[in-house]
């Protein structure tokens, strides 16, 4: 990406129309087959939800959703043929989302863990490091 401007160094300012935009047209069958795949995945995910896999239901559903989302992003949204930076943008947004959810859950799923420890090994506030009491 460091070269965007550099590659246009020879164009200078007002060279309108010099580098015209030429669309990248995909064959129709790519769209149709993507659509069919999305429909099939939808049917699968609904069907699977009637089977009880315990905790795995969530992960199966998320896996299928991610397959669908990748199809939409790569093909319908043209990321596969696009400037790579746009893919970087999308992926990094997901990384930040992961940080957000992950770090927040490092709190919410771990509350109250210290209480039982403190209950088993009560702290002497006047001697927190056990320096005055004789070592066992």
């Amino acid at each position: 990406m460091a070269t965007h401007s550099d590659t246009h160094a020879d164009v200078h300012g007002h060279a309108h129309g010099g580098a015209d935009h030429v669309p990248h047209v995909l064959p129709l069958k790519i769209y149709i087959s993507t659509w069919i795949a999305l429909m099939v995945f939808t049917v699968i995910t609904v069907a699977v939800s009637y089977v009880d896999f315990g905790d795995f239901n969530l992960w199966i559903a998320m896996l299928i959703a991610t397959c669908k989302a990748s199809l939409v992003a790569l093909l319908f949204m043209h990321l596969r043929w696009d400037e790579r930076f746009n893919s970087i943008i999308l992926v990094s947004s997901l990384i930040f989302l992961g940080i957000f959810i992950g770090f927040t859950m490092s709190d919410t799923d771990n509350r109250g863990r210290a209480e039982p420890i403190e209950h088993d090994r009560p702290l002497d506030i006047k001697d927190p490091f056990g320096l005055q009491s004789p070592q066992q």
């Binding site: 770090f103 490092s106 709190d107 919410t108």
Partner: peptide
């Protein structure tokens, strides 16, 4: 800067684990 927000919440009742990481 995105990894440290919990240091505003050390006394909020967030988990000890999260506090330590942050």
């Amino acid at each position: 800067g995105f990894l440290v927000w919990g240091h505003h919440m050390f006394v909020s009742g967030q988990s000890e684990l999260a506090g330590t990481i942050f």
